[in-house]
Write a protein that binds this DNA or RNA. Sequence first.
DNA 1: CACTAAAATGGCAGCGCTGCCAAATACAGC
DNA 2: GCTGTATTTGGCAGCGCTGCCATTTTAGTG
Lengths: 337, 337
Amino acid sequence: MSETTRGPKAGKTVTLREVSEAAGLGMSTVSRVLRNHGSFSAETRARVIQVVDELGYVPNRVAGALASAGSNLVGIVIPSLHNIVFPDLLSGAGRSLDPLGYQSVIGVTDYDLGREEVLIQSMLAWRPAAFLVVGLEHTEKTRSMLVGSGVRVAELLDTDGEGIDLVVGFSQHKAGAASARHLLEKGYRRIGYIGPAFDADSRSAKRYEGFRTVLSQSGIALADMELIAGTSSTEAGRAALERLLARGKKLDAVYFSNDDFAMGGLFHCIVSGISVPSQLAIMGFNGLDIGRFAPQPLTTVMTPRAEVGEIAASLILEGGPPTVVEVAFELIAGATS
Amino acid sequence: MSETTRGPKAGKTVTLREVSEAAGLGMSTVSRVLRNHGSFSAETRARVIQVVDELGYVPNRVAGALASAGSNLVGIVIPSLHNIVFPDLLSGAGRSLDPLGYQSVIGVTDYDLGREEVLIQSMLAWRPAAFLVVGLEHTEKTRSMLVGSGVRVAELLDTDGEGIDLVVGFSQHKAGAASARHLLEKGYRRIGYIGPAFDADSRSAKRYEGFRTVLSQSGIALADMELIAGTSSTEAGRAALERLLARGKKLDAVYFSNDDFAMGGLFHCIVSGISVPSQLAIMGFNGLDIGRFAPQPLTTVMTPRAEVGEIAASLILEGGPPTVVEVAFELIAGATS
DNA sequence: CACTAAAATGGCAGCGCTGCCAAATACAGC
DNA sequence: GCTGTATTTGGCAGCGCTGCCATTTTAGTG
């Protein structure tokens, strides 16, 4: 930590003024070259680039953002990192953000809307260019901060409800409904459900609603359900199915709120000698790679999370009008139903 | 986008000056209250909080950071989001960062050191409080920027080499070596390897080196290997094992560079009727939940990535001296070896 | 009750950059 | 060569906040 000659001009940070002095040019000229904005001669450009390189100048965007009242930061708020959906979403968003030089500031709420509020408030303090948030459910204060800030907002992965500005995703309700129709078509009638606590994950709750609605329409009631507290995991899904089956409701199918749980359920069946799907059908949600390439591919719904991230990020930065963009999900009939 | 009365004082952003005027106090006093720094009376505090609330004031950290030459941003640069290791790392880092009010600016390199350089340079422009980067390998320019910037840096998940400042992780070489010893102890002799291209992922390459070194010491050569281009996935692992076995080298064990690949390999065996481990042993790396709770638990090495993230973030913010912190990995003998 | 130490507050320069405008220079056409 | 227009450049205010210091207020003491 006591380098003296490491890197060009180590220790003291180089400023625009120093660059301009060393180059014998005005600050504004240097600034224009660096931002490639406004006009300047080719020689000036070369001179600036050379000096910048010599001095190892790194522009201070903090000052830049303050002066120009705008940053290249995009705030992204997601519920979790333990569910592959959200890393995939980030990844997709990155595909749009990176080429344009935007940077992601990421916050994780743990499915807590209060925490979301706090995160958004503190991100707002950086005056980001835009916000990407998950879902349409927010606290009243979050909503008003977002609206009042004037920052563009994209709400992702859910189109069942009122959005603030841009909404990109699919109907969770319809996804649940499609899953129910699939199981009904396949002839299952004594169906159970396993998912996270409803108050935690509203998208999962909406899928459940869609699922149950379709069952009702066919005069069928959900036979049983088991709710899971905590993170999505194989382990939790496996244990939950065991508990569910132990109640002896003679189920012929179980709908899992996501593939992590579903894989756990499938594993429980394998271990317990329950034949899938002849004794019990299993259906998941999300279309995880591991489920799709398992020996017995999981019946699931492939969700377009990376596309949602990519589309949302690009639309929000393009500055178009508030819209709702539906991105299709796809039911994948595997070998577990 | 044309709200007029949404939120308190929508449209125009409220500044510190306005708050101070509304409260009948000086700007510095309000600032002190807001940062809970310096001294002020209880009444003043109450007054400020009330006015802030009424006006919906959100401090502008851009200005704050410029004035105080320091931000609450932490730059985190990871190679990928498709390998669970990195989301877990972020998650761990968040456990340390969040309570202290730090925010993560995240960049993904796709295992490209050139891209890492670009990302770090542009993050440096925000004058972050610290950097968390993965691995010890960087371009010369990245290194000198990092050193020259004076920002604290933690290099993660690898301790085999020279660090810049703080290093938190474990020896990838030793992890590979431990894996080799495990397979040798179990009596396997014709061992194959499946992993990503060596130039892409240096940590994976180091594990491979450690693995091969131990084999050599026992006079055993690696029987065969198959390298994979692209993302870690079940699909890729499954296909790679198929290709590897097709070459007819009569392997009795395969060491996979990570659990995603290994699960794919395991699936290939199940589908092809290859009995595991009697005909072929399979070993992975990372200790994924899904492998550990599979009917036939995967032999793997559990890596402490979340702890690494957490420890690194807390140490780097505490401001202690440069150190190397070793966090233990654990070999988990499953049922596939 | 004057007198000092401590607590609370206000004023103001300046962080490093950008936006605006004016000045200087280059390039036309006649 | 000279005026008119386009292109390059420089100067400077100010973005909103913090750090420092001076000032005022309050509490404490003999």
